[in-house]
Each structure stands twice: as C-alpha cells, then as structure tokens.
Design a protein around this nucleic acid. Structure first.
Lengths: 166, 166
DNA sequence: AAAAGATAATCTGTGAGACAGATTGTCTGT
DNA sequence: ACAGACAATCTGTCTCACAGATTATCTTTT
C-alpha cells in the first residue's frame, strides 16, 4: 500500500522517516563522492575544520564535529599519512596538537567540495531553485537552534517532561 | 571560529552537515521518547508498517523500511515477545509470514505516535508554523523523488558521471 | 616548591551491531 | 520429478564506537 507520492503508507507524515530518507540519500551519494578521501566524510570534515582553523586542539575539534576523542586519533592518523594535515605542537600548551591543513590538503578539500556541490545539487533536484535556498535556510536555523540549546542532553529533558504530563 | 548563527565556520553551507545535525537532533529525541518501545525506532517502524498493512511478508517490509533481512528476524522476535505483533502464516505461501499488529500493538503505536508528535514539534520549534508545513512538504517531495529513482544505486552512478567530466 | 587535581592525546579491551553465507522449508516452471 | 528461486532463520565474522587506563603536561593549592 502506497500513498499517491509513492511513499509507504503512513510514513509520509513521519518527520523522522522523511529526514532519514533524504539524509541517507545524501549520505550514500557523498560516500561515493568521497570514496577515496582518507577517512571519508569524517576525514573531509576534519580537513575542512583544519582549513577554517575553528579548533584549538583535537578534542575541541572533536566536540565541534560531534566525534569521539578516540576516533579523532586514527582519523587524524589517516589524514597525516595521506599528507593532508599535520599535527602542529601548540607552543603555549605542549599537551595540545593543533591540526593544520597542508597545501595538498587544501587542494584536496577544494576538489572534494566541488564534487560535494554536485551531490547536493543532485539531492535537492526535486525542489525548484528558490525553494532550495529556503530549504537550506530553514535547515540552518534548525541546526543553529539545536546547537544553541545545549544540544542533545536538552532534548532528552524536554521529551521526558512531555511524556510525563499526558 | 563561529559564524553569526553559532554554527562552526564554513559548515553553515554544508548540506550534509546541516541535515546531519537536525536529523541527529530528532534521532536522539526520538530515541528517548521510544526508549522502552521494543526495538526502539525500528520496532516502532515495524509496528507502524504492520498496522498499515504495507507489506506482504518480512522481506518485503524489510526492503520498504531499509532494514537488513537478518535484522528483521530478531526485531520481530522482540515485538512478538512484547505482544505487539504476530507472525501470521500466509495461507497462499507457507514460506511467508505476514506481520500483523495486535490490539496491544495498535494501542502502543498510538501512544508512541503521540509522543513522537511532541518530538517533531520540538525539533521544528525554530520555524514558524506555516514554515513547518512547507518544510515537511519539501522533505516529502525530496524523499519521494529519491525513492522514485531507484534509490541509492542510482545516486552512485550520477555522482560517478559528475566526477568524470571535470 | 611540592603535591594534588585537571586536561590533551593516546592505547587497549570490550560489547553491540551490521552483514555475508549457509540451511531449511516451500514455491514455480519445465 | 527435478532444478532453480525465494522466505525465514541461524551462525560466524568483521567493523566500529565507546569506556577505561596511561602518559605527559598544565594549573591550583597548601
């Protein structure tokens, strides 16, 4: 049984299901696009963050990217081995290593970004151009709002309250 | 370094990152909401599909829901143990088991759906009411478009082509 | 200045989960 | 009757995220 849209019956109003589908579509396409990028999408994110210099050290970057600190280790290992980033010792704090992109890393990132642009275009093909902009804008606001409220821990509380009072 | 939105620099235009954030926000909240639902979100999906009668057998349902066939086995096991669904032997094909919801399953689904409604409301809080409708509509169309084009295998080809011609 | 506590990166071990392959019972076509 | 396909299940394997311990360093306390 399907709806007129071609979606499984009853799921066309399920936000989680819909987001999962679209997110997964993008994920799969991006995975192919970044197949030979060291560390795949997560590697891409790290190089991206390294180029933008968002983070002061590995843990900081891990937190910003939502990665586990132990994952960060072998992720950066791969990227170093591929010559895309370097672990620069922080002169102010010898415990910390600042992740900086190499020239090769910058070039590789630019190329990957180009391909990812095509992927995004492909995923959003069902929307007309001005809608794509609005969709992006809404996503941006949703993500910002989520990050602003302390992220996931907060969500749990809200839900718990909601369940409590029937 | 952050943008004026509070997002990590450079990621505010990254569709995958944005979707990941919002999807993850919903995922986490839904996980809490369905914490004591057998099989969690996937269990919920199965009961939901069972109530709507979308599938003729387990494999069919697994395909529609994007689950592995072996996962389906212990997922349905849990739900049967909890008394939410039953494996009805298909009289026309004794290889197949049709997954049907029990009355308890229907009731449990309704309650879970109510809570998930609150979760969705919470996740979309950053949008004003009419925007939420449009956001849902866009997602619906994106998902439908993706399913219409044979799903993920297709995406891979498109990307491959795109990468080929620089 | 020495001791105690916190923090960054790393290493190790473990548990959960996804998936491939084999197995059994059943259907379909020849 | 036989071969091949298919549904459900079982088993084994492999990956991967995460907790906990470890080392080096910084900070604060006394």
């Amino acid at each position: 049984m399907k709806t007129e849209h071609g979606l499984p019956a009853g799921f066309d109003t399920n936000l989680g299901w819909l987001m999962g589908q679209v997110f997964h579509a993008h994920l799969t396409a991006a995975q192919h696009a970044l197949a030979d990028f060291p560390g795949s999408q997560r590697g891409y994110m790290v190089v991206h963050a390294a180029v933008n210099g968002c983070a002061r050290n590995q843990i900081d970057m891990a937190n910003q990217l939502g990665l586990d600190r132990t994952v960060m280790v072998y992720l950066v290992d791969q990227l170093v081995a591929a010559g895309l980033v370097e672990r620069m010792p922080d002169p102010n704090d010898r415990r910390s290593r600042v992740i900086v992109a190499t020239d090769a890393g910058r070039a590789r990132l630019a190329e990957a970004a180009r391909v990812l642009g095509l992927v995004e275009e492909h995923v959003l093909r069902a929307l007309d151009p001005d809608e794509r902009g609005r969709f992006r804008d809404m996503l941006r606001r949703l993500a910002a709002h989520h990050l602003a409220n302390g992220g996931n821990e907060h969500d749990a509380c809200v839900v718990a309250e909601a369940v409590a009072d029937k």
